[in-house]
Amino acid sequence: MMSEKATSASEGGKARVKAYGSIAAVVLLAVLAWWYDPSWLYGWLKVLHVVAVISWMVGLFYLPRLFVYHADAEAGGEPAATFVVMEQRLLKVIMAPAMMVSWVVGLWLAWSGFGLLGLWLWIKIAGVVGLTVFHVFLSRAARKFALGRNTMSARQWRMANEIPTVLMIVVIIMVIIKPFA
């Protein structure tokens, strides 16, 4: 079993200060950009949105795959402890920030680009709500794994891994084809 922490408390504190500083800088830049509304803003926000969505989707595909292997690992063993660290870092460092950026920038783009009109946009938003619900489900499952209380088999996790794929397909169809427009 792992007896040492991967990072010390002081390193964690430094990382926290850097993260809060970065968040403050991004918020300040966002307010300035919103205030001045330069012509290039919409295009760059679309880029940011696509990067955030890709990052979030990678996590939504990878975390259930980690759960497949974690479910087969011996509880309390070194591999199980390693999976806990991997799962927590994936959730906290990649998935949660990417989800938040996807939502905030996506809603801003929808509001400024479409005025939230069109059935296709509401179906897309419903698909993203489904992805968010799945994200919350995975977060809770990661906590259960960390406590040694997983209740699903590796096979069930393999099947759960298909949920974000189906939702992603719905969202992409709504964005590219725009049926019901």
Rank of each mutant, 00 (worst) to 15 (best):
P79F: 10
L121N: 09
M2N: 13
A75P: 03
V31P: 10
M1V: 08
G12E: 11
P64G: 01
R149E: 15
K144C: 03
L32V: 13
G12M: 12
A33Y: 07
M152K: 15
M152T: 00
A98L: 08
S22Q: 12
R149V: 03
V93H: 04
P64Y: 05
K144A: 14
W122H: 15
T82P: 00
P38Y: 04
E78T: 09
V47N: 02
M174H: 10
Y42T: 14
A75S: 07
A146T: 01
P38Q: 10
G148Q: 11
M99T: 05
T165M: 09
H70G: 13
L63I: 15
G118T: 01
P179T: 04
M86W: 10
A25G: 03
V58R: 00
G113M: 03
F180T: 02
L66Y: 10
L41F: 15
L107N: 09
W56E: 03
M159S: 06
V68E: 10
W111Q: 12
I173D: 03
F67H: 13
R16I: 05
R16G: 01
Q88T: 10
V93S: 08
G76L: 09
V104I: 15
E87W: 02
R158A: 01
P38R: 07
T82V: 13
F61W: 12
I173G: 02
L28R: 08
G113K: 05
P38D: 06
W120E: 01
G106I: 00
G43S: 07
L66W: 11
S55E: 02
